[in-house]
Design a protein around this nucleic acid. Structure first.
Length: 829
RNA sequence: GGGGAAGUGGCGGAAUCGGUAGACGCAGACGCCUCAAAAGCGUCCGGGGGUGACUCCGUGUGGGUUCGAGUCCCACCUUCCCCA
């Protein structure tokens, strides 16, 4: 046989396929519930099965997998599960637009995405997989709902919502942007509809204060949650309406400005409006205004629209100053926030100022800014503290003290009380949609609203029913709607609303711990063993939605005795997005780089390395088609060296610290141990900047290449042992090639079950260090000296340097700064 | 409008504690190998000046603190994110 050229590249496709199969067969990543090792729960946010993964998704899962593998190799019993957020609108839209069964659509997508996740070489424990659309899962949503119902945490009430008159359904705020239905384009209305809520506000203070106990969370996420909860302390008090004998209650955080009230602003939906209409002479005008306001979405009302209003012709009385103040119906006060009415103090509130300007209402200054003695014409509201004026008994008081004093006076007068108000509202759980968890409630003509008995769970979502996109499919399905009353056994109607899908993701991390339990949502003992999640990884888009709901849910579980502790996620890491061609990857932009084609062309190890090396994981990073080439080259270079060395390594006993002789050997070993240190530091400080670790591995390969080219290099023991070490350091990031070469080198067991090597201080130490010599802060020379050389010795050497001499010649030495092993700065003049 | 984060070569980025700016990679230039190409290998690669040893400038802009600033402080500009 004639001599053939050896293969230049390794066959990534067959290698990757082979090891993925082997790992699965050997259940390599199965987490044991009773391991003596310390537990580590690492988790990526579960995906919605939209159909296809692109390299942007891969960035997230690759990081999570690198973390899981690093912890596993450090001796932790790692649980790293994966599942599917499988209920939701896209499946239903596929049904509406293309007549595809939502269940079938979802299951096809799950099958495909699971295949793709396996393709990524992720080390998930698939035996724990869950899909939220399965009755085995959603029955426990219903179970939790009933438990919350019993505890008064789930309740039904009327609330204003976005309503599309054509499609006959409620819409989420983001589905009604610009005031029109996202599907049919009809203008949406605000409607008061009876809806199910979860009482998350009952935990408001706990959710707020708990943030202080989460040092492992990004500060900005905590700030966002604090702002979202929006706790404010103030006074709720009443203004009596003239000629009506009724009151309007207002909430204010600034009772010290009560004497500056020049109008009352109430929401168009405020219940008192009906009464006002009865006695107002201007009812026609008011009704026209209200009609215009009601059609607008909340988004438009709070941010887009100019502040507007209409005077009712009716007055109320300020309980402190006894002045008459006009009552206005406005578009900038929301019925759902506070009391649905605010006192208008234009001098000291920006929105009130703007409103007063527009409608020529008086602006009465009652707080003087420090350093002023007379009220001046205001060009904008003065919202800070100062001295109170024109405020009856309180005149002359500092406003900070006045705030308390006025609040207390209102309380003493019996017209008000100190209250705490929150910006966020209870969680609206109802959806008039098909593809979700049915709410387990029936309505009996005699016994009214009744919970479905636990024994009858799950209330199954019917399959094969028509989905047209108009109205609730469940409400029209007679078989589903017909039920019996659990109290009297008589006929009853089912609740046709389904649950918001954030219900599913509020507790899925607990179900992973006990995914096949058919007696309870999860075993308390297993939750105690594994919880809390040690590391949670996901995008920042869920900062106030999922992450707040899950914290609420966990506390409810705690109060039910199902879990211990308050917080489900000890540490949170926010991934940055991956952009391509300057834009976020998305189907609609047509700039999606799919993972199937990428993996086929370059191999998944190269892709994983590129995604990790592209930049810090929390940053927005760029996908480039050429960048991955560098990682392909890296793997091929490593392959050529390691594959050739494998036969020798099979004969060579493992020795992590071979004796070095030459400077080249020393610098190779040092590079390797710096790579170990980098990987361990990044994993254990949770900085996760593995981009720097991969740069260290590049340097190791450069050093390996260099040593392999010295005479006899390929037999050099240091070189050979370093190759073995390189594979161990690479294993968490490029698991397939590392495993393949490990096997070829005669490694026992899987490389992924090995212990990650520890950096050795002796190896890291340098024989010589470079000390920079500066004159007046500018580098003039570099000295090679042994570590920890004394200042006098370094100074003596420095003065012999010609470049230093010319700089200090004829000048006086003023100061000498010495940083051992780093620098000597000579200050002269 | 308010709050937050970030601005470093042609590009992605490194410099983790105030101490050699530009590690590592991509792209590019030149060379080797080859009939040729691909792959691979080698050298160079912030800007100005100089044959060269070198030298001056340089981390968005302008100030400041310091022996010394990409890093700390103040103001401004730009971009992105969140809230309104």
């Amino acid at each position: 046989m004639t001599e053939t050229t050896p293969p230049q590249t390794y066959d990534h496709a067959s290698t990757e396929r082979r090891w993925q199969r082997q790992w699965e067969e050997r259940a390599l990543y199965r987490a044991s519930d009773d391991s003596p090792k310390p537990k580590y729960y690492t988790l990526e946010m579960l995906p919605y099965p939209s159909g296809d993964l692109h390299v942007g998704h891969a960035k997230n899962y690759t990081l999570g997998d690198a973390v899981a593998r690093m912890m596993r190799m450090q001796g932790y019993n790692v649980v790293h599960p994966m599942g599917w957020d499988a209920f939701g609108l896209p499946a239903e839209n596929a049904a509406i637009q293309r007549g595809i069964d939502p269940s079938q659509w979802t299951h096809q997508n799950i099958a495909n995405m699971e295949r793709q996740l396996r393709l990524l070489g992720t080390s998930y424990d698939w035996s724990r997989e869950i899909a939220s659309c399965e009755p085995e899962y959603y029955r426990w949503n219903q179970w939790f709902f009933l438990k919350m119902y019993e505890r008064g945490l789930a309740y039904k009430r009327e609330a204003p919502v976005n309503w599309c008159p054509k499609d006959q359904t409620v819409l989420a705020n983001e589905q009604a942007e610009g005031g029109v239905c996202w599907r049919c384009g009809s203008p949406v209305e605000r409607r008061n509809l009876s809806q199910w809520f979860l009482k998350i506000t009952a935990y408001a203070d706990e959710l707020l204060n708990g943030l202080d106990d989460l040092p492992g969370w990004p500060e900005r996420i905590k700030t966002m949650q604090r702002n979202w909860i929006g706790r404010s302390q103030g006074v709720t008090f009443s203004f009596e309406i003239e000629r009506l004998g009724q009151h309007i209650r207002v909430f204010t955080t600034r009772p010290d400005t009560t004497f500056g009230v020049t109008f009352l602003a109430i929401a168009a939906e405020h219940p008192v409006v009906a009464k006002l209409l009865e006695i107002s002479k201007r009812s026609g005008e008011i009704e026209r205004f209200i009609q215009g306001v009601k059609n607008k979405s909340e988004l438009e009302r709070t941010s887009l629209m100019e502040k507007d209003g209409v005077f009712t012709g009716i007055y109320a009385v300020n309980p402190l100053s006894h002045e008459r103040v006009p009552i206005w119906v406005t578009n900038y006060v929301l019925a759902e926030y506070g009391t649905g009415a605010v006192m208008g103090v234009p001098a000291h509130d920006e929105r009130d100022f703007e409103f007063a300007r527009k409608h020529a209402l008086p602006i009465v200054q009652v707080i003087l800014p420090p350093g002023t003695t007379e009220p001046e014409t205001l060009h904008e509201a003065y919202v800070s503290e100062g001295r109170m004026i024109a405020s009856g008994d309180f005149t002359g008081m500092a406003s900070k003290r006045g705030l308390r004093a006025v609040g207390d006076r209102l309380t003493q007068l019996g017209v008000g009380e100190w209250t705490v108000n929150y910006r966020f509202r209870d969680w609206l759980l109802s959806r008039q949609r098909y593809w979700g968890t049915p709410i387990p409630i029936v309505y009996c003509e005699t016994h009214g609203e009744q919970p479905v008995p636990y024994a009858e769970l799950p209330v199954l979502l019917p399959t094969n029913i028509p989905i047209t996109g108009e109205g609730s499919p469940l409400a029209r399905d007679e078989n589903f709607m017909r039920a019996t009353c659990p109290v009297c056994g008589g006929p009853a109607r089912r609740e046709s609303d389904t649950m918001d899908t954030f219900m599913d993701s509020s507790w899925y991390f607990l179900r992973y711990l006990d995914p096949h339990n058919d007696r309870e949502p999860f075993s308390t003992a297993l939750a105690q063993h594994w919880m809390p999640v040690d590391q949670y990884i996901g995008g920042a888009e869920h900062a106030v939605l999922h992450l707040l709901y899950a914290r609420f849910f966990y506390r409810v579980c705690r109060d039910m005795g199902l879990v211990e502790g308050d917080e489900p996620f000890t540490r949170l890491f926010n991934q940055g997005t991956l952009i391509y061609g300057g834009e976020k990857m998305s189907k609609s932009r047509g700039n999606v780089v799919g993972i199937d084609a990428t993996v086929e062309q370059h191999g998944v190890d190269a892709m994983r390395l590129f995604l990790l090396a592209a930049g810090p994981p929390e940053d927005v990073t760029d996908w480039t088609d050429t960048g991955i080439q560098g990682r392909v080259r890296f793997l091929n270079r490593l392959w050529r060296l390691a594959d050739a060395a494998a036969p020798r390594l099979r004969e060579l006993p493992v020795d992590p610290l071979p004796a070095t002789a030459t400077p080249q050997e020393k610098s190779l070993l040092r590079a390797l141990h710096l790579a170990y240190k980098s990987a361990l530091d990044e994993a254990n400080t949770r900085r996760f900047h593995f981009n720097t670790t991969i740069a260290r591995l590049d340097e190791v390969l450069n050093a390996l290449t260099e040593l392999s080219r010295t005479p006899g290099g390929e037999k050099n023991v240091v070189y050979l042992q370093a190759l073995r070490g390189t594979l161990l350091a690479l294993a968490p990031f490029a698991p397939h090639i590392a495993e393949e070469l490990w096997e070829r080198m005669g490694g026992e067991e899987s490389i992924h079950l090995q212990t990650f090597p520890q950096p050795n201080a002796g190896v890291l130490a340098l024989d010589e260090v470079t000390v920079v010599v500066q004159v007046n802060g500018k580098v003039r020379a570099r000295l090679q000296v042994p570590p920890r050389t004394g200042e006098e010795d370094v100074a003596a050497l420095a003065l012999q340097e010609p470049a230093v001499q010319t700089q200090i010649d004829g000048k006086t030495l003023r100061k000498r700064v010495y940083v051992p092993d780093k620098l000597l700065n000579l200050v002269v003049s």
